[in-house]
């Protein structure tokens, strides 16, 4: 915990930061895009089924699915997937660095492990969360337009008209704020678990598991708080 509290001056580590942006952001594109595309399609089918059942009408399906996507599922599912992909990795990496005394070696070489390990991962993770959220929303909306055209007989123009009547630009900005918060939660919780890891390889595994569990839980709670702050007050 001491690492997180000390006064420190931050240094821009171009190499490490770029590496993390690549590893956390670019390499997560496939899993996120595929998952969110299918979640978007599933949501449209479900909503269409229910709306037909209850309202005998499905013209508002694209709008509702888009609202849900932009406000909630886009950032939350993206970041939960990101947590399972990178959270465990960060915790295990730092944990094993601690176990193999790499952290001590860094300190003795006058390098602050927080500065060297956490800041680049933080920047990388926020970058990943923001960019992947945007891409996932775009993919979900695009997939929704295609499915709506195929399945509901809604033209893409009609689809986007309905969508953009409900989804306003501030929604997108709020969604990005969420992504920023979640993107911050993941590396900080994961590296905290790594830094406070006990010695031994079992402990590294435990740290990785705890990182995913705690980060996921924190994301879900933070999402509720942010939604409450944005839309309920």
């Amino acid at each position: 915990m001491n690492y997180f509290l000390k006064n420190r001056k931050f240094r821009w580590r171009r190499e490490e930061t770029l590496e993390q942006m690549y590893v956390l952001g670019v390499q997560s594109i496939p899993i996120i895009v595929v998952s969110l595309a299918f979640i978007g399609l599933m949501m449209i089918l479900e909503l269409a089924f229910h709306m037909r059942l209850v309202l005998k009408h499905d013209s508002l399906v694209p709008a509702f699915s888009a609202v849900l996507m932009v406000r909630e599922l886009g950032p939350v599912i993206t970041c939960l997937l990101l947590t399972s992909r990178i959270g465990a990795g960060i915790a295990a990496e730092i944990g094993s660095m601690k176990v193999t005394e790499q952290l001590d070696a860094l300190k003795l070489l006058s390098i602050d492990p927080f500065d060297y390990l956490v800041i680049p991962r933080w920047i990388g993770s926020v970058f990943a969360a923001l960019s992947l959220t945007m891409i996932s929303i775009a993919v979900a909306l695009g997939g929704g337009a295609l499915l709506a055209a195929q399945k509901l007989g809604t033209s893409s123009g009609e689809y986007f008209n309905t969508v953009f009547f409900f989804v306003k630009f501030p929604d997108v900005l709020r969604c990005l704020i969420k992504a920023f918060v979640f993107g911050t939660i993941i590396p900080f919780i994961a590296s905290y678990q790594g830094f406070s890891c006990e010695l031994g390889s079992a402990a590294v595994g435990e740290a990785a598991t705890q990182a995913v569990v705690r980060a996921s839980l924190s994301i879900i709670i933070a999402d509720f708080l942010l939604t409450y702050l944005f839309y309920a007050i």
Binding site: I29, F127, L130, I135, F164, K168, F169
Partner: peptide
Amino acid sequence: LFLTVIILLVVFGWLMGA
């Protein structure tokens, strides 16, 4: 990736009238 996100943001902003 960075460029894609910027473009998406501009496109969203334009479509949503911001």
